[in-house]
């Protein structure tokens, strides 16, 4: 009985656990990369003037958040795209195995799913452009 309840609970909770672990790891990675990018920016002196200027104004924390936001935008959108491509790709293969003439149309949908990652990348570039 206890085993059955545990199994049921695990089955219900695992997607949420996986999602939380993903988000936390991305946030952590974003913070680490933001910190190292900020310090390397300072070392290079004038060439990364904007970073240095922001740091001089006491905006260092804001810059780290910007890097983290860019990392999150890219990371999460890539994960989303991966899930979408996985779903659409497998469905496309299923349909194509029965009707090969659908290959062209099926690939369009895989491309649409892949576009989600590109949106994230664009948002990240826009964020980094303002740093």
């Amino acid at each position: 009985m206890i085993m059955a309840i545990n199994k049921g609970l695990v089955r219900k909770v695992w997607p949420a656990v996986v999602a939380v672990v993903w988000v936390l790891s991305i946030v952590l990675a974003g913070m680490v990369f933001a910190g190292s990018a900020y310090s390397s920016g300072l070392a290079e002196g004038e060439e990364v003037g904007q970073v240095a200027a922001a740091a001089a104004k006491g905006g260092g924390i804001n810059v780290s958040w910007a890097f983290m936001a860019a990392a999150l935008a890219t990371g999460l959108s890539t994960i989303g795209a991966a899930i979408a491509v996985g779903l659409v790709g497998s469905s496309a293969m299923g349909a194509m195995s029965e009707r090969p003439e659908m290959a062209g149309r099926a690939l369009i949908f895989v491309g649409l799913a892949e576009g989600i990652a590109i949106y994230g990348l664009i948002v990240a570039i826009m964020i980094l452009g303002r740093v």
Binding site: P15, L87, V88, S90, S91, A92, M93, G94, A95, M96, S97, E98, R99, M102
Partner: peptide, 22 residues
């Protein structure tokens, strides 16, 4: 719903392709 979409996306597309041959 998302889990169901994962479980049935492949077979759903396959079945709809098969149904078109009925």
């Amino acid at each position: 719903m998302l889990i169901a979409a994962f479980q049935y996306s492949y077979i759903n597309a396959k079945l709809r392709a098969l149904k078109s041959r009925l």
